[in-house]
Design a protein around this nucleic acid. Structure first.
Lengths: 302, 302
DNA sequence: TGAAGGCCATGACATCTCCGCATACCTGGA
DNA sequence: TCCAGGTATGCGGAGATGTCATGGCCTTCA
């Protein structure tokens, strides 16, 4: 048994696992049982003669050998898929870009950029997908995305520490702001003093409230009145006066009526970056066009 | 069932079939039965939804779809093999060149070039294989050879008519000569008149005697006393006085004692070319070095 | 501290795939 | 007409690959 005896199915499954970070998730994505995926991976590892995955309590991570195999698997699977299209007489998808984005980018940046790109380069097809930073990074490494918009907060670490390092480009850096109800006392000024944020009722995202939704560094356990993943929901909750929340400056333009978005003074600067990440290597022309469109939107919203 | 469901084994088998030109030959090369190969190909065709091979009485030929699939299969199989080496911790075989050659080139050109290359570029490994022109061309197309030495006779047609056309480079063009026993009456002069070739006893290669071994265009049924595939055998037969044979000028240097190699005057010029062929695309540096070494040998033997 | 819920591995079993063997079939050449 | 060289195919056994059900491990939360 050698790596030569690996099966295409196993390679496909492996790529999916690498992208999802979990055997179970990969299984449901592929319409398999978790058991089947487990066995496929086991078979692939037997063929490779090495552990490809590091099992952890919350899923799996690629080992060094796993990353090697992933690169090969991505090429192989892509080649097979390209052959499939070719046999079907479909055009080469050279003009299709697969873009991933973090939730916030979907509210303004992505649609604007796609509109602009559609006007200037109607021949470019863009397929997009929302995802968390780890999910997007995994998808880039698995070759399932060409490019991804990623959010980054201080201390602005690289999205992952694998090799080869992703090529990361800062699209924009802005200060974090706070969204308050228009009728809220804090809405009277054109800015908010950081001290006034203490004791407020917060609307945060799901999970760790410090991660998203609550002003960082307040040092107190925040009062989280509501949690919501969706920006529209959050902002409507704010508009209705149920609390306040942090918001990136880029969403100012789409804040609904009844919401004021204000900068915060005092305390350390809370910068947020929007990154454009992709695997190192030559940049296909459609990808460059899309990147340019994204940059243009950022600049004109400046 | 879609091309997506093709199996790696099937792709490997298919490449071998494309290279050998015969299911049976591919089977023995792979250690399979002909039956297994036939089924694998059938399965691949079912997956592709198209006939990949045109069945002929003397073997198979690739259809248009077959050529498409072959290109993909070569990439995929190479990728898997590269992954295998990588996992085994072996170095990337970037510095290995796979060279194919026709029988005559093995007597002088290939060993000389390898010696020279070994002196100037000891880090380059060359793996070689002898084969007929069709076999070499198929191997190039299957991605099993990087470059091949091919013999060519008038009217100097391209080695095949598939697309993309092979990149062919004429290494040398020389006139065909005749090897006669040193004691033969024809050996008295420094050349032979074409008329004197009539009625001679010939030592030809196997198969059609006009193809190799007998002077072309004599218009008579030649008297073939012996047939031999091997140059050493042929030349020793000549030396022993059992007949005469045609010989490319490049072998003059290795003709044994008792044999004279003479040019022929009169009649149309019988030119023979040695070609260097490879798939179109970028030329890896080691391949370029090898080509240079081959050219150098040709020039210095001029 | 115990229950729940996320993850992965694995034994049991049904099914399908794939190979070798033997054989049938086709075609061109002696 | 027979032979030689090719490919296709029915048959049976071995192995690969799914599902189901279960078990173990870890973290979280009440």
């Amino acid at each position: 048994m050698a790596f030569t005896d690996a099966s295409l199915v196993a390679l496909r499954v492996f790529r999916e696992v690498a992208e999802r970070g979990t055997l179970t998730a990969a299984a449901t994505a592929l319409g398999y049982t978790q058991s089947a995926v487990s066995r496929q991976i086991a078979a692939l590892e037997r063929a490779a003669g090495v552990e490809l995955l590091e099992r952890r309590h919350d899923g799996v991570r690629l080992t060094t050998a796993g990353r090697l195999v992933l690169r090969r698997a991505a090429v192989v699977v892509d080649e097979i898929d390209a052959g499939t299209r070719e046999l079907a007489g479909l055009p080469d998808d050279e003009s299709t870009v697969r873009l991933g984005w973090f939730a916030t980018a979907g509210a303004w940046l992505v649609p604007r950029a796609l509109m602009a790109l559609g006007r200037t380069h109607p021949s470019i097809t863009v397929i997009t997908r929302e995802g968390s930073t780890p999910a997007l990074v995994r998808a880039l490494r698995a070759g399932t995305l060409d490019v991804a918009l990623i959010a980054s907060a201080p201390p602005f670490r690289a999205p992952d520490d694998e090799t080869p390092a992703l090529e990361v480009d800062t699209l924009v850096e802005r200060s974090l702001r706070v969204a308050v109800p228009a009728v809220h006392p804090l809405a009277r000024n054109d800015y908010i003093d950081v001290e006034d944020l203490r004791g407020q009722r917060w609307i945060s995202g799901p999970g760790d409230p410090w991660v998203m939704g609550v002003w960082p560094g307040l040092g107190e356990r925040p009062v989280v009145a509501h949690t919501a993943r969706d920006w529209l929901a959050k902002l409507q909750l704010v508009a209705a006066g149920f609390g306040i929340t942090t918001i990136p400056a880029s969403l100012v333009a789409v804040a609904p009526a009844g919401v004021r978005v204000l900068p915060v003074r005092g305390g350390p600067a809370e910068q947020r970056r929007v990154l454009l990440a992709r695997l190192p290597g030559p940049v296909p022309e459609p990808v460059a066009r899309l990147a340019a469109a994204l940059r243009a939107v950022v600049v004109e919203t400046e």
